[in-house]
Design a protein around this nucleic acid. Structure first.
Length: 620
DNA sequence: AAAAAAC
């Protein structure tokens, strides 16, 4: 039995026909209303008469061509929380399916949220008196954010915001944001959240560790809260999530799920994760209990779709994390199948958001298949690394790598970092190489573990836990751990084997230097890495790193190539949205680039990641 | 060539 909020509402109302495959009308796209102008007049808003739906299942409340109104309800106190709904959001009349409103009015009589585990592990009431004050900003290196270039292109780009308070996310979500100790939005959040709330498709590039997960989760959660009236079809054992978040690894999906659970605590929005390598039955049970946001890896999702246990028919929000990876050769067919060949609403009907730190031009081109009149957002140069990471490259022959690593680890032992064990993440090229190096490290007195695709999911998760806890402060990893994983206290990333792709390098070193903290990245370079010399030297130079003279010499000899994102000799700006590249000018009109506006914002000095010290979460 | 992602 599905007990998701919206399902419950749906159950109490008449069945609706969503049987045909006609594109759903999209009430959101025609007009952009800046966040600060929305929800201005709760008192003027017509009281919702109950779940009124058009044939496609969208709420017909208020707005017409707008998003359904917020705060249209009245008197919607939530008995179990004791907090008044304050005119915001989805509380109030209409919720109960015309039966007098209120939360406990559904058949069954109990509120599922009472059983919701507190993901914050506390039960204290959060301070709601002063919201988002800026007094918790210690530990953040604001200077590092001072001159991050921000570029947007596309039609009618919604302006950025400076604070969470000025974004109308709703009180419950705001409270969760406070519980997460997020004080101010990070640069990517400042720009992406208004764009997403405006209903626009988005291709967002932002540096590793800059808070991308929240940037797409907040708008999805608040959007679903505003539309809880939506009715979903009832087909035996099939569930109809409203949002789908895809990521390339199981651990990353887990992490996104954990974060989304915190953000959606007590909102009534249900988040479920599905990935391979774990028993499917438990995931099926979770799904049957109701799902609004499904976080998944592609393989398991396809399985669920083929079993008809999940339908994408009601998807309103699609987010691809690490989107360039999701669309590269290995994943693209699966993604196309999910997005284009199942029952997902077409682009322009759903809202699609792509996020990554890197976005090669050819992948941008591919990605535009999934987007509709989208906004391109770049915070920092696409594919650049953050200045917070000190990058070193050392020339190390293959045979010397182990002893060289040993030297680094010995040197590091002396660096005690206030209480918390400093963690070292070592990247290697192959799964076998990972096992071998782990074994050798352990034999030599360095507690290490390893994570790669040949290990069972249980082993992978155990390795990650053991590393995070400091029990084994060295983790040897393949590229499975290169992207997105937010592991606090990673002080050092060692590229024992360099990747062939500079973008992979960017993601790997991005496991340190997160949330405004500094980090160190050391790479072992030798003749086997010649093709990386030029892009690596350019990247390091861009990031104001010291480039060894020998690397510069290699780079000058290396053939031009591997330069997917950067224009040689180009300034720090421009040419990052592929629609604006000269060679694609014939496409400009098609993509609406002909009359597109481009705005570049200098970033004010005081707005870095306003997060309390020690608090990092899923940022990428 | 390797890695990831379903059973």
């Amino acid at each position: 039995m599905r007990t998701s909020w919206a399902d419950s509402v749906a159950n109490s109302a008449s069945e609706i026909a969503v049987a045909d495959n006609n594109p759903l009308p999209r009430p959101t796209r025609s007009t952009y209303v800046p966040p600060h102008l929305r929800n201005r007049t709760a008192s003027e808003a017509p009281t919702l008469p109950g779940p009124v739906t058009d044939r496609a299942g969208f709420s017909a409340a208020a707005g017409g061509s707008q998003w359904p109104r917020w705060g249209g309800g009245s008197g919607g106190n939530k008995p179990e929380s004791g907090r008044p709904a304050q005119g915001y959001g989805y509380a109030g009349a209409g919720r109960g399916g015309g039966g007098g409103g209120g939360w406990n009015n559904r058949s069954g009589g109990w509120d599922r949220r009472e059983r919701e585990v507190n993901p914050f592990g506390d039960d204290e009431e959060v301070d709601t008196e002063h919201s988002f004050n800026e007094h918790e900003n210690s530990g953040i290196n604001f200077d590092a954010y001072e001159d991050i270039p921000v570029e947007t292109s596309g039609d009618n780009v919604p302006p950025p915001v400076n604070t969470f308070a000025e974004i109308d996310l709703g009180e419950v979500l705001n409270q969760n944001i406070r519980r997460c100790k997020y004080v101010k939005p990070t640069p990517v959040q400042r720009h992406a959240i208004p764009i997403a709330l405006g209903g626009r498709d988005l291709m967002a590039c932002a540096q590793t560790g800059s808070g991308k997960t929240a940037a797409f989760c907040f708008p999805i959660i608040s959007g679903i809260m505003r539309e809880q009236y939506v009715q979903r079809p009832r087909v035996a054992r099939t569930v109809y999530p409203l949002a789908l978040i895809l990521s390339p690894t199981r651990e990353l999906s887990c992490q996104i799920h954990d974060e989304a659970k915190k953000f959606s605590y007590q909102t009534g929005v249900k988040v479920v994760v599905a990935y391979g390598g774990a028993p499917i039955n438990q995931q099926l049970r979770e799904l049957e209990r109701g799902v609004d946001i499904l976080v998944a890896t592609p393989g398991r999702l396809v399985d669920l779709l083929e079993r008809a246990r999940v339908s994408l028919q009601m998807i309103r929000y699609l987010a691809l994390d690490e989107a360039d990876r999701m669309l590269d050769m290995g994943f693209e067919p699966q993604i196309r199948k999910i997005v284009e060949q199942m029952d997902m609403p077409t682009r322009g009907v759903r809202q699609t958001m792509l996020f990554s730190a890197t976005f090669p031009r050819e992948i941008q081109r591919l990605a535009s298949d999934f987007l509709s009149n989208y906004i391109f957002l770049a915070v920092g140069r696409v594919g650049s690394s953050t200045d917070l990471i000190v990058q070193r490259v050392e020339f190390v022959q293959e045979t010397d790598k182990r002893s060289h690593l040993m030297d680094l680890l010995h040197a590091q032992r002396e660096n005690g970092i206030h209480g918390k064990q400093a963690l070292t993440l070592v990247f290697v090229e192959t799964k076998k190489g990972a096992d071998a190096l782990e074994h050798w490290l352990c034999m030599n007195g360095f507690p290490a573990t390893t994570i790669h695709g040949d290990r069972t999911q249980q082993e992978r998760e155990m390795a990650l836990r053991s590393f995070k806890s400091g029990k084994t402060p060295i983790l040897v990893a393949t590229d499975v751990a290169a992207r997105g994983l937010d592991i606090p206290h990673v002080a050092h990333v060692v590229n024992f084997d360099l990747p062939n792709d500079i973008d992979d390098y960017v993601h790997r070193i991005g496991r340190t230097g997160r949330a405004g903290k500094s980090g160190l990245a050391t790479a072992f370079f030798n003749e086997g890495n010649l093709s990386l010399s030029r892009p690596l030297a350019e990247l390091m130079q861009e990031a104001n790193q010291e480039v060894p003279a020998w690397l510069t010499r290699y780079a000058s000899r290396a053939p031009y190539g591997g330069n997917k994102n950067r224009r040689s000799g180009g300034g720090r700006f421009g040419g990052r949205d592929f629609r604006r590249e000269g060679s694609f000018s014939r496409n400009l009109d098609y993509y609406g680039g002909g009359n597109s506006s481009t705005a570049a914002y200098g970033v004010p000095g005081n707005y870095g990641g306003g997060y309390a010290p020690g608090v990092t979460s899923a940022w990428d």
